[in-house]
């Protein structure tokens, strides 16, 4: 499988204390563990099992994920922006890998 590629949409700027909407997506097959290959052997589960969003080190939003979340998991949620800073996004894979992305936002 190709390396999962995260994509995140965060506004470039906001006013102090504004609640903004963040959209995230990561390319991932989200193999459910329910499927069988053509010889009838079960295909082992491999999904993104956790997603977190932090702002300047403080947790903003987290999601615990089961195989019933679609391939290329998409999340849309909100965050309060008290000051300029950096959003850090982390996706945790069943295989132990984690994938991250960062976006900065400026408070005007």
């Amino acid at each position: 499988m190709a390396t999962p590629k995260p994509r995140v949409k965060v506004p470039k700027s906001a006013s102090a204390g504004e609640v903004i909407t963040i959209k995230t997506l990561i390319s991932h097959e989200m193999e459910s563990g329910q499927r069988k290959d053509k010889d009838g052997n079960p295909i082992p589960r491999q999904i993104i099992n956790k997603f977190t969003c932090e702002f300047n080190g403080t947790k903003v939003f987290e999601c615990e994920i089961e195989p019933a979340v679609s391939a290329n998991p998409y999340f849309e949620f909100t965050a309060k922006v008290p000051e300029s800073g950096t959003f850090k996004f982390t996706w945790v894979d069943d295989n132990g890998e984690s994938y991250t992305d960062e976006q900065t936002i400026e408070v005007k």
Binding site: V19, I20, V60, F61
Partner: peptide, 9 residues
């Protein structure tokens, strides 16, 4: 810090 309890997936 979420600002609101809204989520879409």
């Amino acid at each position: 810090m979420s600002g609101s309890a809204v989520a879409t997936t």
